[in-house]
Design a protein around this nucleic acid. Structure first.
Lengths: 263, 263
DNA sequence: GAGTGGTCTAGACCACAGA
DNA sequence: CTGTGGTCTAGACCACTCG
């Protein structure tokens, strides 16, 4: 048949459906190499271009990843649960002695899946993004904030980029410039310096990843990421810490919980 | 040139970038018809297939929508803010006299953008989805729950599908079976019946839409939706109401906020 | 250097919407 | 019935990875 289509389900979607089902059924082990394009093309009796489209869908959905010159089944098919309640409200036992969130929180989120958590930190004085500058009330034209950029992995698969920003007035030449912020993390250090966080807001958007994120999180341009804007304020309403978390949507579930006391 | 590529940025992405930029710059008005494929193909000096790929991206991202046999610029380029704090904690003035959430909440979210909110409700006794059945502790094999399915629009653009489930033991032959649940909505009716909600959990995932959602929300298969699972519990920990909200990710921003009192 | 995936063109066909 | 978008094939080229 030259061109044309008879079924209502496009061929490339049908192929994607079959491969997806095979992955979910465990016929391809997580992390395993996939057959080449031409092998698949003959298997599904279609052209290589059609296979390419099907694969593109599966890459975007996170079922497949690129591995060297071929593709492979994603080693992380389960989702990591990020529970804001556990992170920021209940004492988190797995963390430091005083119930530190941030670092210990991610580790236990990943450990809950039986995986190994990893993380890199880069501390630097930077020019803040416009929205961060406005929230913190600092200049967006000069290196006015301290940034702590973390890249987190689960079993060596990158799963999150998180960057915290604190005004230079507070953070420069303080313990926050150390790579290791010690027990309790930034929140405790800020509290010791008189900036006790009392109000937290998180705003969630979903967008396509930037070129940097594609590289650092090993994504495709068709993938989607959560952009989570975390803002912590002191009792007087001033934002003391702003963090931007970027996470592939197919790797994460977000959870929030609260109590209705009276209302 | 027959086939091949020299630049690192694929032609179809470059085309998509230009059209996206033109839309954001307001060169095409929201809701306006787009030129046809072949017009665009000659404008960008490329083939029709390449235009098709570019358009597919923009449809997935929500910049374009299908309109009859052509496509058009989306009439809803701004995002609606869903603030859980306003919905479920602070008294919501725009709603009923008692601070009812649900219905009034959506209306004010949309009104904040200067748009007109609309909504349809379908009440029915149904067989619950497996996860809902488990949460409510009812059978998943028979019509054991009351479902209230709402389809919400902003200026006639569909923006959300929300289905609430309550166990039949509670809801059958009660005021909850009325299309209009009266002042305060379901939450107040449930409270009057002795089921006062005290704990709320919301769990967020992002996925591709189902075929029904594609139709009802006028989406493409490449689009993404939030699936928000809302669970309300009474003081004894029993789930009394479970709601599933499905929203295109490109139309919504989600916000949560809380207080750190002591900890 | 050989092979693989990623993309492009040209041409063709079908479903479906509107006149 | 006509035109438009949506998809498919075949063939071709390039960048990149691996050996």
């Amino acid at each position: 048949m030259v061109g044309g289509m008879t079924s209502n389900r496009p061929a490339y979607r049908a192929v994607a459906d079959k491969i997806r089902a095979a992955i979910e059924a465990g016929e391809y082990a997580p992390g395993a190499q996939m057959p080449g394009d031409m092998t698949l093309a003959s298997q599904f009796e279609t052209s290589r271009a059609t296979i390419g489209l099907a694969v593109r869908l599966l890459l975007a959905e996170g079922y497949l990843i690129k591995k060297g010159r071929n593709y492979a089944v994603s080693p992380l098919l389960k989702k990591i649960l990020r529970d804001a309640n556990v992170r920021y409200r209940k004492p988190n036992r797995e963390a430091g002695p005083d119930g530190s969130p941030s670092r210990g929180a991610f580790a236990s989120e990943v450990r809950a899946l039986g995986m190994r958590a990893g993380s890199d930190v880069t501390v630097d004085r930077v020019v803040p993004p416009a929205n961060v500058a406005e929230l913190l009330g600092v200049s967006a034209d000069e290196p006015s904030v301290l940034s702590r950029a973390r890249r987190m992995t689960a079993d060596d698969v990158p799963v999150q980029l998180a960057t915290s920003y604190v005004s230079g007035e507070i953070a420069f030449d303080s313990a926050l410039e150390n790579v290791d912020t010690g027990p309790g993390g930034m929140i405790s250090r800020l509290a010791e310096m008189g900036h006790v966080q009392t109000e937290v807001t998180e705003e969630i958007n979903v967008r396509t990843p930037t070129v940097e994120e594609i590289e650092e999180l090993q994504l495709t341009e068709d993938a989607r990421v959560y952009e989570l804007l975390h803002v912590a304020r002191t009792a007087d309403g001033r934002a003391v810490e702003v963090a931007v978390h970027v996470m592939p949507t197919h790797q994460w579930t977000l959870r929030y919980g609260w109590t209705l006391d009276g209302n």
